[in-house]
Amino acid sequence: MVSKRNPDELLKFIPARDSPPYTLVVVYGERSIGDFWTFPDDGTVERVLGAIAKVMPSILTLDDVKRYLESLDKPSERVNRALEAYQSLVKLREVRPGEGLPYKYEPPHLPGWKDMMIGGAIPGLKPNQRNPYFTGGTAKHYRPVINFDKCIKCSLCWEYCPDSVFDVTPDGYFNPALAYCKGCGVCAEVCPVPDTIIMVDEMEFEDGYGKFIDEYRAWKENREAYRKWFESLLPKAQVISVRKR
C-alpha cells in the first residue's frame, strides 16, 4: 500500500480476513490511482518496486529493479525513488486473522437465464431504489458531506450521480446513501452553492462500511451539532474546482 499513514491507522479501513495471516507493507508516499486508461508517472511504480525488492527479494532483487529502471527514460530519477523506498520508506505490519474493518465481501447472485428479462433487458430503478450489488465496497477515497442548511434543493446532485446514491427526503432534500457512493465527486462538482457538498477523505471517518452515518438524519436530530461537525470538515475538503473555492 502507498500511504503517508502508519499501518495501524490504515488497518482500521482494511477489511478483515479470516485467514491466513499476512504482512501489510506500507510504502511512504502520496496515494496514486492508475489503471488501463491513466498512468500517473509520479514515482509510485518505482517506489513499489523498491519495496518489493526490500520485502521479497526472492521475487525481485534490487539489482533486477535497477536493471529494469535503467532501461527506461529518466533512469537516475527512477532508480533514486526505488532506492529511497528500499532504504527508508517501507513499514511492515503482521496482520492476524480477523484484524481490520469488519466487512465481509458478498459476491453478487447472478440470475439464471429463466429469471432474466429476455434479450438481457434490465428493468429500470425507481427513485430511492438501488441495485444492492452496486455498493462501493471499501474502495472509495472520498465521500460527500452535505450542508443541508445551505442546500437549495435544486436536485442536480440527485440527477448527476452515476450510482443513484441520493435518496429524496420527504421535505425535498437529497441524502446520500454512502454505502453506494464510489466517491467520484460529481455531486460536489455540479452543486451550484459553494461549500454545500464537500468531498472529504474517507479516512477522516471511522463509521465504517455498512454502518455509514445517515447525514440527513444527523442533521435533523441536532442541527447545531451537525453544523459544527460540517465546519470541522470544511478545511479538510478536497478542492473540487477552482471555480468554486
Binding site: L110, G112, W113, M116, M117, G119, G120, A121, I122, G124
Partner: peptide
Amino acid sequence: NVISVAPQVNEDWVTEI
C-alpha cells in the same frame, strides 16, 4: 416503462442470453 435494452455485458451474461 423504464428499462435498459441491449446493455453492455461481460461473460457473466452472454451464455444466459
